[in-house]
Nucleic acid binder design. Structure first.
Lengths: 233, 233
DNA sequence: TGGATGCTTCGATTAGCATCGAAGCATGAA
DNA sequence: TTCATGCTTCGATGCTAATCGAAGCATCCA
């Protein structure tokens, strides 16, 4: 007994409704100010401040001071990963909190998961990259193949710059809605950024939803989506 | 705001010290009775009973009545996965609770993670299977290659019987000590069982530690451990 | 049938912590 | 300097939930 790391401290930190709301909001990948997070959680600024200090103490968040504003973002991808895992458990236990409706639909189709693409479109991207032999390996050990590197470069992503960061380039991230993995890590981030750059997709500023334009979705399908269908037939 | 599943309920469930202790104990993969879990958590049986009902309600545990005993085990592998993730965060934040010493060492070297092998030996097994081309794919999509199937069968594991279960056969599971993936799922379980069968390893009944015999470790090294070393040189 | 064991339910107590008002501190603008 | 904005600290309040004693229920054994 009393083996291993103390889960309780961290889990209790996430387990408060106000803090959980803040963390969920931060899953968008954006850095938010104290007041924004307070509004998001539905508490006053004082309480938000107290919560945020605690989460920083617990290494869940990373603060960034800029003038008189103080921004917070998730400390790292590992945190985001655990949060998605918890969402999966919550969804499985029936603790869905969404108003079912168009909003729910949109989130399931495409949403932001700590700066990369998640939801149905996310898994399509991931499956396609695997099926076409652009990605290989497993989980943490996931990596771009030679063919994959050429493909990515051709798609307009600067791999060289990605490689410099210490964060893992590729990372499989489990989806709470699709229950399948999708692409995280620096590469996942880069893909989403590129989609926005190309005008294929646009983030909803008020939620985690990502809206693909009709043209964007068609283009996406040509490059990624139909790989599976074509191979299956 | 208020998007997605409600993390807070689940996280709060895990976030109580008594409950966290019980969950940690259940990471051994064994099913434990109410009284055993009470002892593990350091609370009376009444409180334990209350906690266990709540965790069952939250779909974290699966109860099993047998006579006048009531056994609990983790509800599924997804739960175990999230718990390991939380341990990773806790370890990263410095919330280690172990008495450093031989016990800590043993756990880092080899331990049980929901019925499969984790720790240093676990990652060695995993790396070896990948390096030798027995496993391919990624994360959830992980699967045995043809070569891998032959190898596993030769090693004395009955794949046919494994295939029948609905649970995923292979699953990458992130390690809190090694910070690397190791093999979970039905296959991971089968490997550990086979190691015990061969007399290579033995579980400590009182903790999550796994003790390899000198002979067992040597044999393990011959089959798995040195694959990397040999390829690197 | 009577007693022992294992678990659950009930009720009362207590402690921890989220919450917010008020005041204080830092930064930026006029 | 003076005012406004954004955040933090302090102190008081109130609520939630963990805890355990006591009693009740189910199962097994003799």
């Amino acid at each position: 007994m009393k083996d291993g790391p103390d889960i309780a401290i961290i889990a209790a930190l996430i387990g408060d409704p106000a803090r959980a709301n803040m963390l969920t909001a931060l899953m968008s990948g954006k850095a938010l100010t104290v007041s924004e997070l307070a509004a998001e959680a539905g508490v006053t600024i004082q309480t938000a401040s107290a919560h945020l200090s605690k989460m920083h103490e617990g290494s869940l968040l990373r603060p960034l001071k800029q003038g008189r504003h103080k921004y917070f973002s998730l400390a790292n991808e590992q945190v985001a990963h655990v949060l998605e895992g918890l969402m999966g458990l919550a969804a499985g236990a029936g603790h869905l909190r969404m108003r079912t409706g168009p909003r729910d639909e949109r989130l399931r189709k495409a949403r932001v998961c700590y700066n990369h693409l998640a939801g149905e479109m996310g898994t399509r991207l991931f499956d396609s990259l695997l099926a076409q032999g652009h990605l290989a390996g497993t989980d943490d050990a996931l990596s771009l193949t030679g063919k994959g590197k050429r493909f990515v470069a051709e798609f307009g992503i600067d791999i060289e710059r990605l490689g410099k960061s210490r964060a893992p380039l590729c990372r499989a991230c489990l989806d709470w809605s699709a229950r399948r993995p999708h692409l995280g890590g620096g590469l996942g981030r880069a893909f989403l950024a590129r989609f926005e750059e190309l005008g294929w997709a646009k983030r909803d500023p008020d939620s985690r939803a990502i809206a693909f334009s009709p043209r964007g979705e068609r283009a996406f399908g040509e490059v990624f989506g139909d790989a599976f269908g074509a191979e299956r037939s």
